[in-house]
Design a protein around this nucleic acid. Structure first.
Lengths: 238, 238
DNA sequence: AAACCCTACTTGTATATACAAGTTAATTAC
DNA sequence: GTAATTAACTTGTATATACAAGTAGGGTTT
């Protein structure tokens, strides 16, 4: 008996449709089955279907048009997720490599990129790690991540260079990013960044300090990113 | 007879509650009246109230807690809105001055910061303007905005140095930002930016190319911002 | 072939009702 | 005074039903 069997009906339908869109059962531009059809298929009432569709719409999977239907938009990037885009095209996954500079380890909290910590967070302990991303073997992005050592048993033993942090959190811990805040600056590379990015002094580097809010109470993800955007801009949706 | 009289019930209730929160009738940490109380007050049913509250929750005005109530979070920054934050505190409005470099004028579309334009957008014509923002009399942010010359009659005659572009769009044209995408880079100041920000060559400058989606079909706001973040980071939520 | 009309579909809005699950405050027992 | 229990509140989930408003497609008329 899977976890889905314990979900409220509207969440179960939402997850099924979301999965279908992610897996390409429905493609961008397609119309989902109508609310009446879904109601019959999933053996729930139309208001329950509408609640599921509303979630999909809010997250960017579909757009609803009165009188026409629910139009599939494809899989949205996901709120808060950043990617690298070239000056003309996006970077394919196959050209992106992740190196762990510091593997995930449990530490006590340090200063979190000038965001305040609550008492609850301070009590939880912290998972800390550093990553360097390379495009075509060229380092372009360095980031430090801290998040509470809570809700995420055995996180440090997972291998996730090839997987998105967010995918792992969602799949294994049912943790999803719901929003966040960020501070963005342009700085010049200090010695550490100069060595990471192989650039000279005075080279401009993008810095983002971010605090991501999730669906779990008191579980915020703090990260600080540095990006050499000479060849690839940082791209995000919101 | 105000426009609110022609809104669906749930939107009317949503607008009233949102206004109450913005105006401080409810403060951060307060509980809103219960769903049953609101149902009686506004003479609609509880599902209609719940639909209004769900919108407020989605936009960050409230957080709902089962068994407890709807907790006011205050007025969220608004999706897509950026502000300047000092290294230690946010910039008060009184220290921020806006200068129009180019007043809003109707032009034909130019290239919009490497975002593609649809045929519909091309047909609409474009409103274009440039602004420079100063903090404590120091220029820190320069931005170029283009949006369709549609839905916004007599926009160019409005004075909005002291008002937020988004506030004007919302109040006078019922246009709201719903989300968007952005490309972020760190560059060095070219001659134009050097003169705007009074900085030397090689000074790092933040650049953001943004495309904001609104509630109006085919109405996207394109903007390109340059920011000297030496003293003030750019701050946003999402 | 094009325009118009009508029907059947779609989503949008709303009411009514019921029960589940969480929180808080009042009451009772010790 | 404290702890436990209970009642009354809250939001969460769901069904059922009805009508409004928008879109698409087929048929008819010109």
């Amino acid at each position: 008996m899977s976890a889905e069997d314990f979900l409220p009906h509207y969440k179960r339908v939402y997850e099924i449709l979301r999965k279908h869109i992610k897996e390409g059962v429905f493609s961008q531009g397609d119309l989902l089955p109508s609310e009446n059809e879904l109601s019959i298929t999933h053996k729930v009432t139309r208001p329950t279907i509408r609640k599921a569709l509303e979630r999909l719409q809010n997250e960017g999977y579909i757009k609803k048009q009165q009188g026409k239907g629910s139009i599939v938009q494809g899989t949205p990037k996901g709120i808060g997720i950043l990617s690298l885009s070239g000056t003309t095209s996006a970077v394919g996954k196959e050209n992106l490599v992740t190196k762990m500079i510091v593997r995930p380890e449990v530490r006590s909290w340090e200063e979190v990129f000038s965001f305040p910590l609550s008492e609850k967070e301070k009590e939880m302990g912290c998972v800390y790690f550093e990553r360097l991303r390379l495009v075509n073997n060229k380092p372009v992005l360095f980031d430090i991540t801290m998040m509470p050592n809570f809700y995420i048993p055995r996180f440090a033993s997972r291998k996730f260079e090839v997987k998105s942090l967010f995918d792992i959190l969602r799949k294994h811990y049912q943790i999803e990013v719901k929003g966040g805040e960020q501070k963005i600056l342009a700085i010049t590379a200090d010695k550490k960044l100069q060595s990471f990015f192989n650039v000279g002094p005075g080279h401009p580097v993008l810095q983002l300090n971010r605090k991501l809010e999730t669906n779990k109470v008191d579980f915020y993800i703090y990260s600080q990113l540095f990006c050499n955007t000479a060849e690839h801009a940082l791209y995000g949706t919101f």
